[in-house]
C-alpha cells in the first residue's frame, strides 16, 4: 500500500486534482473542507463568481452524500455516511466529482431526475428551479429537491453520471459536474 500511495498521489496531481476526500462525512467535515476549498480556490486566479459556482456544486454533492449515501455505519452519534469527493482543474475548466453507494430505489429516482435535466435548456432549468422552490419538498428529499437543478445550472457541460452495480441491491453512484 505504501508503494502505491505515491503513484495514486502522482496520478491525481497529473489529473489536476486540487482536493480529494474519501471516507466518513459529517457536518464538521463538510465545514472543515469548505474552509480549505475556499482557501485553495483563492489561489486559482479565478473570479469570485466561478469560485462560488465550484463551491456551490461541492456543497450540493457532499451534502447529498450526507443525506443519501447507503454506505453508513451506526455509531453512538447516529449514522456515519461515507463517500468520496474530488475537486480539480483541467485547463480552463474545473470539475467537481462525488461518489457514494445507493440502492435500486434511489437509483431509479435519481436516474429519472438526471435524464429530465439533461434535456433541459438554460431557461427551462431556471424556470424549473424557481417552480421547485415554490412547492413543498417531496418526502424522499432532505432538501427541497433543488440540488440537482442547482448543479445543472452551474454546469457548463452535460452532467456525467454512472450507476455501477456492486451487488446486493447496491450501486455506486458517481457524478461529475464540469464548471
Amino acid at each position: 500500500m505504501t508503494g502505491e500511495l505515491y503513484d495514486i498521489k502522482s496520478d491525481m496531481d497529473r489529473d489536476g486534482v486540487i482536493l480529494s476526500y474519501s471516507g466518513p462525512i459529517n457536518q464538521d467535515i463538510i465545514e472543515g473542507l469548505s474552509s480549505v476549498v475556499k482557501e485553495k480556490l483563492k489561489l486559482e486566479n479565478i473570479s469570485m463568481g466561478t469560485s462560488l459556482k465550484i463551491f456551490a456544486v461541492f456543497i450540493e454533492q457532499i451534502q447529498n452524500i450526507l443525506y443519501y449515501s447507503q454506505d453508513s455505519l451506526i455509531t453512538e452519534e447516529g449514522r456515519l455516511k461515507s463517500g468520496i469527493t474530488i475537486i480539480g482543474r483541467r485547463n480552463d475548466h474545473f470539475f467537481v466529482i462525488s461518489g457514494n453507494e445507493t440502492n435500486q430505489f434511489q437509483k431509479e429516482r435519481l436516474e429519472g431526475k438526471l435524464k429530465k435535466l439533461s434535456k433541459m435548456s438554460r431557461d427551462e432549468l431556471k424556470e424549473a428551479y424557481k417552480s421547485a422552490r415554490r412547492v413543498e419538498s417531496d418526502e424522499f428529499s432532505s432538501g427541497a429537491g433543488l440540488g440537482f437543478l442547482e448543479m445543472a445550472r452551474k454546469s457548463s457541460q452535460p452532467i456525467e453520471y454512472e450507476f455501477r452495480d456492486i451487488g446486493e441491491d447496491r450501486f455506486f453512484f458517481s457524478l461529475n459536474i464540469i464548471i
Binding site: A56, E60, Q63, A144, G147, E150
Partner: peptide, 8 residues
Amino acid sequence: YFNSSSSK
C-alpha cells in the same frame, strides 16, 4: 453563499 435547501 447559500445552498439549495436554504434557497427554498
